[in-house]
């Protein structure tokens, strides 16, 4: 499990994770799976959920300027300027 989660952390974007989670839920709710597969999917779903929860609770806004010069505001945090 620990390994599995590690792999998820690195490889999956939030969106991919959500999409996979959604498809897992759909297939679970569809009820066509073998019980063994259901259990596997459930496990995968739970670890995905954990990763996704961590991602949004730890998130900090990232701002990238692609064009123009952004006049900073007192509360802004600008990471980098590309052009």
């Amino acid at each position: 499990m620990a390994d599995d989660q590690q792999k998820l952390d690195e490889s999956i974007t939030f969106n991919q994770g959500l999409e996979e989670l959604e498809s897992i839920i759909k297939s679970l709710e569809g009820g066509q799976l073998e019980l063994e597969d259901s259990l596997k999917k459930y496990e995968r779903g739970v670890s995905l959920l954990r990763v996704l929860q961590a991602k949004i609770s730890d998130a900090e806004q990232k701002v990238t300027v692609l064009l123009g010069e952004l006049e900073p505001d007192s509360s802004d945090s600008i990471d980098e300027t590309l052009s």
């Binding site: 806004q61 010069e69 952004l70």
Partner: peptide
């Protein structure tokens, strides 16, 4: 806050 923002000025 999870959204990454591109500023196109």
């Amino acid at each position: 806050p999870y959204v990454q923002v591109y500023v196109v000025g």
